[in-house]
Write a protein that binds this DNA or RNA. Structure first.
Length: 118
DNA sequence: CATCGAACCAACC
DNA sequence: GGTTGGTTCGATG
């Protein structure tokens, strides 16, 4: 059973959360990134759980789980093919600016409210 | 800046 | 019942 409350997912099984995450990921345009926390709010789960879900995505990078980074700009992890190096490469190719310290620039972040409202 | 602990979860042991 | 995750956030020194 899955319940939606104020646009936030409540009690669902892993499979349901995974489907929800994938849908949200498809909304992120190339060249932009979102934070784990943002997804966590929408899904109603703790941020750590988002990581677990993304790690469970077997269709990376078709489903762009590489466009999810830490809120402080650091890349976070990537368990898909090619590992973290590949994640960074993908982002750069898509136009995300990453500084020498491996931080994503703030203007590359996008919020789901901006993706859903316009 | 570094470290700490708690947190909205389901699965697994 | 405790641990585990690609984490976050606020409080603290």
């Amino acid at each position: 059973m899955i319940v939606i409350e104020n646009g936030i997912v409540r009690k669902a099984c892993l499979r349901d959360y995974l489907d929800a995450v994938k849908m949200l990921l498809q909304l992120i345009p190339a060249g932009k990134v979102v934070s784990y926390g943002e997804l966590a709010r929408l899904l109603g789960v703790p941020p750590v759980f988002v990581g677990k879900l993304l790690a469970m995505n077997d269709e990376a990078p078709i489903v762009p789980c590489h466009r999810v980074v830490r809120s402080n700009g650091e890349l976070g992890g990537y368990s898909g093919p090619g590992g973290i190096r590949f994640k960074r490469k993908l982002l750069e190719v898509e136009g995300v600016r990453i500084d020498a310290e491996g931080r994503v620039s703030r203007d590359s972040f996008v919020h789901f409210t901006e993706l859903l409202d316009p």
